[in-house]
């Protein structure tokens, strides 16, 4: 498994969103925490072992990672796909976890069967997707033609891996909502106030299903606060989890 590791302080596992937009959240958090940020298998040019092809597999993979480093008192921060994985970890086994931060997380179904909670990112135009993801889409537009061969190949493979993990049931586990009550550690649910992909109200429902959770929004921000408002996101995470001592 490939991962970034850096910083000192309380351990923090950072699980990325599945979207191929550059950000430096791991480095920013490393100023306060001892950060481990794995690449989800199949992303960033990494090899995906054949037996890993579901969010469930990712949850066990990262639980095993915490085990193999013998980390305790870990804050798990997950965004979008990563938030879903973090929640799946926490409902399974939280004895190594201290706190949970879910950022514009996928993973649950809250509306009725004919109302999508999460827009179908694979069935819309690039421009429509950008408008759902960002408060200010122009700022983050990627020009595929300007990318190197390697970067373009990497982006294409990221998209395949993303689809592999979230295709069906689309971006959620029908069982997860009913299991969120098992999460007893302090949890912060953070949402981009302008998230068009997964609306803030979905985040409120996510938080309401977790016994010890609070909900907050980041203003002027879409689905990816780590890309669009990284300073504000880091402030929130540090305020929530930064006072812990390394254990």
């Amino acid at each position: 498994m490939q991962f970034f590791r850096g910083g000192s302080g309380a351990p923090l596992l950072l699980l990325d969103s599945g979207f191929s937009f550059q950000h430096d959240l791991a480095a920013r958090l490393a100023k306060t925490f001892n950060v481990i940020a794995p690449l989800h298998p199949g992303f960033g040019g990494s090899r995906r072992p054949e037996h890993i092809d579901t969010v469930d597999d990712l949850a066990y993979l990262y639980l095993d990672l915490l085990e193999s480093f013998d980390l305790r008192g870990v804050t798990v921060v997950g965004a979008s796909l990563g938030g879903w994985v973090a929640a799946e970890m926490a409902v399974r086994c939280s004895h190594r976890l201290a706190k949970l931060v879910l950022v514009d997380s996928l993973g649950i179904k809250v509306s009725d069967r004919e109302t999508p909670d999460i827009a179908d990112i694979f069935a819309i135009y690039e421009e429509e997707l950008m408008a759902l993801l960002f408060r200010d889409p122009q700022k983050f537009k990627i020009d595929a033609r300007a990318l190197s061969e390697q970067a373009l190949a990497c982006m294409i493979e990221d998209r395949s891996a993303h689809a592999l993990y979230i295709w069906e049931p689309y971006a959620h586990n029908p069982k997860l909502l009913g299991r969120l009550g098992r999460i007893t550690i302090p949890t912060l649910v953070i949402w981009g106030g302008n998230d068009g992909l997964v609306k803030p109200d979905y985040g409120r429902k996510f938080a309401a299903a977790i016994p010890n959770a609070t909900f907050t929004t980041v203003a002027q921000c879409g689905h990816l606060p780590q890309v669009e408002q990284p300073e504000r996101l880091v402030e929130e995470i540090v305020r929530f989890a930064g006072d812990r001592r390394a254990s």
Partner: peptide
């Protein structure tokens, strides 16, 4: 439209490029 011609993982990486 492109999103239906080029769904994720359908074509090889070289073809998508």
């Amino acid at each position: 439209p492109m999103q239906f011609v080029n769904p994720p993982g359908y074509h090889s990486t070289a073809t998508v490029m």
